[in-house]
Design a protein around this nucleic acid. Sequence first.
DNA 1: CTGAAAGCGCTAACAT
DNA 2: ATGTTAGCGCTTTCAG
Lengths: 336, 336
Amino acid sequence: MFEPVTIKDIAKALGLSTSTVSRALRDTHEISAATKKIVLAYAKEINYQPNPIALSLKERRSKSIGVVVSEVANSYFSQAINGIESIAYDRGYHVIISQTHESYDREVINVQHLASRSVDGLLVSLSSETTDISHLSSLHERGLPIVFFDRVADEIDTHKVIANNEKGAYQATEYLIKQGYQRIAHLTSSKHLSISIERLSGYEAALRDHNMEVSSSYIKHCLHGGMLPEETETAIKELMSLKEKPDAIFVAGDRLSTGCLSVFKKLSIAVPEEIAIAGFSNSDVLDLFNPSLTSVRQPAYDIGQLATEMLLQLIEAKYPVEEFEKKILATDLYVR
Amino acid sequence: MFEPVTIKDIAKALGLSTSTVSRALRDTHEISAATKKIVLAYAKEINYQPNPIALSLKERRSKSIGVVVSEVANSYFSQAINGIESIAYDRGYHVIISQTHESYDREVINVQHLASRSVDGLLVSLSSETTDISHLSSLHERGLPIVFFDRVADEIDTHKVIANNEKGAYQATEYLIKQGYQRIAHLTSSKHLSISIERLSGYEAALRDHNMEVSSSYIKHCLHGGMLPEETETAIKELMSLKEKPDAIFVAGDRLSTGCLSVFKKLSIAVPEEIAIAGFSNSDVLDLFNPSLTSVRQPAYDIGQLATEMLLQLIEAKYPVEEFEKKILATDLYVR
DNA sequence: CTGAAAGCGCTAACAT
DNA sequence: ATGTTAGCGCTTTCAG
């Protein structure tokens, strides 16, 4: 039904062979200027577009990279994607985005699909459910370039780009401490995620450095990182029903932070009078919130750009790369 | 470097022909149960994945659909995308998302790329810059199925799915009128966008039905739909420097609505005391805003689903479809 | 400088 | 039931 123009059509119309046409279009030297001109003119006239599918099949590369994130409806990821695209498009690569919705199964399916679809490389931020990463390590072992960003898998030896989650968490927690809060809880995403581990560690370090106790009853995990509102609500209710109610919470995630505010609003708990909040967020409408949210902002756009540059370096490397780096970018604390 | 397993590898390893292997994997009847079992077992063992590129080339279809939106970092679009994916994945189609960032040039490039990449169909919401739609109509004439959603092109005869923008705008404007506001301005996106036209028309109808005058000085267009904060700020400043300052604004877009609130905050203009706002928005953190925003919410997820169903119907139609529909879904007014 | 032919991975018509 | 062959669109030897 939809029949694009092929090199064959041009050849037939011009009484040439397909190879000659191909050469004219590819601009090789082994072609007469005259023929080239004719072919190019005709190609433009009929708006010839080479078929990238055929090209991919031939060259075994697609000039496209796959991106695996949990949700595009997340400021952090949409900003990172913009960073990714900015580099990729400049370098002639196309970007295929896929969402896991924090589901491990979805992640496996998406990764398989992208790989079989001949993406030349993968930019991955793990889903919160993922613990087994064999779907990625097997591809990586077989030579598919992969760069992790945000939620990384330490088991796989490749480039990684993350924000300084530990320091960001430390600063946010310290901010709450300096504001005079005494019982600071921590609400975070699933336990095994690299970002959760790093942010937890920053939180604990800040407490310890200020001679405050780390209590496990103050630390709540949400397996789906706030995707399910009930999860957040349950965690908050548990915290608020402790004998020693916390007077502040450091929240380690975008959706979780806004989710928290919603829950408090719903439960009519005054923020920051009854409980103060500081949390990670890259939302760009944060300044419209009331109560306001002191937040740690990650350089999502830069992270996306850097990860893409590193991936393209791997893809275009002449020789297998053996040395891998983990880049750590600074966060910003916005006090509100 | 990255060498996936092919049907040929299996054939060689098992001493069969490629076609036999293909038949075993395709599960045709003309194959012995024994061979089939052997092939399937071996395929599973080495984790064989068929190469969809080769398949696309052969079958001239890719089982994938392209999506063209302005920004994924926009609640409306990210929700629509989720709706799109929910249907597409169920039906075995993959979704390739591309962003125009409200740029016409980018839209042309993306559409060309998607088409040449052999997507089986296109879901399109036009960029705010787009007036010339020949990049789409030429593809459409050549038989590529296209369904428009949100920002549609009336010139192209195909399925369209939109929210009831006119009624939504009418209700929001009427709400402001009933609150007692007298001088209601209208801030909207670029003039030629279908959504702008529809929403403007609802706004004007509401004013007229309540015997209020429509004044062109009260209507401000932002060519980039609020993508550029200066645009919004300039428009607001112009409105606020009129002799007869408006006492309310009906805002016709997500980014524009939040952008408006930001500008008022920046300029220390009290909302809703000095000026009231009602606007289109699909943000899911609207309830955390202060000042709060009365908003028209579109059924973005449903729109995405419906548009996808219609597109797949076109793609899978046995005979060329001649009758096209424009589906109009109801909006919701959230008074805050 | 140009054409014929092979091959990328896969399927399907045609043989056997 | 299985193998052989051709062909999807393109590039690239290999011949001429």
